[in-house]
């Protein structure tokens, strides 16, 4: 039982971290004189301008954002890579232009706190289960028989339902 639970935890943790490390796929950018809207938007959708709260750059209607998109287009035409373009915006406008905090310094807290809190929850729940099971065993031992404790009154409806099913078989 314990092993199953532990493997459940590790499985969910694996899933969690696997997704965390998933590379963000992006179509390869073709070199051409004027990059298309799609190529510009592929980068713009991961950027946020400092003025329009929480609106990604690719769908932001303000004039400032339009100029940013043109800037991206220009830089793409110059042959700059996605990384270089994003780096340029971070250097000029700060880390907030990125859709996620950069993984440096204190920002690691953003990524570490939720999984740590979740694992703490898993641990607490696991401890609680252990305590309950011990209590159940002790209660059974006190009852004298030493056998498994009698099943608690199960869902009344389910019991009747199962009984009916059996009767009819």
């Amino acid at each position: 039982m314990k092993r199953r639970f532990v493997s459940l935890i590790s499985l969910s943790f694996l899933l969690f971290s696997a997704l965390a490390m998933m590379p963000q796929s992006r179509p390869a950018l073709a070199q051409q004189p004027t990059p298309s809207d799609d190529e510009v938007n592929a980068i713009a959708q991961d950027l946020f301008c400092p003025v329009c709260e929480n609106t990604p750059l690719d769908v932001c209607p303000t004039e400032a954002c339009r100029q940013w998109r043109e800037l991206i287009r220009q830089m793409l035409a110059e042959g700059k890579s996605e990384e270089e373009i994003k780096q340029y915006f971070v250097e000029n406008y700060g880390a907030r232009v990125l859709s996620e905090p950069p993984r440096t310094g204190l920002n690691w807290l953003a990524y570490l706190v939720p999984p740590v809190a979740f694992l703490a929850g898993v641990f607490l729940l696991f401890r609680a289960f252990q305590t309950w099971r011990r209590m159940a065993r002790e209660a059974a031992a006190e009852a004298g028989s030493g056998s498994v404790p009698a099943a608690p009154p199960a869902d009344e409806y389910a019991a009747r339902f199962e009984a009916e099913l059996k009767k009819r078989k």
């Binding site: 965390a20 996620e100 953003a110 939720p114």
Partner: peptide, 13 residues
């Protein structure tokens, strides 16, 4: 420092 916590952060978790 101002940072944005956007869709990728939430979706992944």
């Amino acid at each position: 420092q101002k940072v944005t916590v956007g869709p990728p952060f939430y979706e992944r978790a």
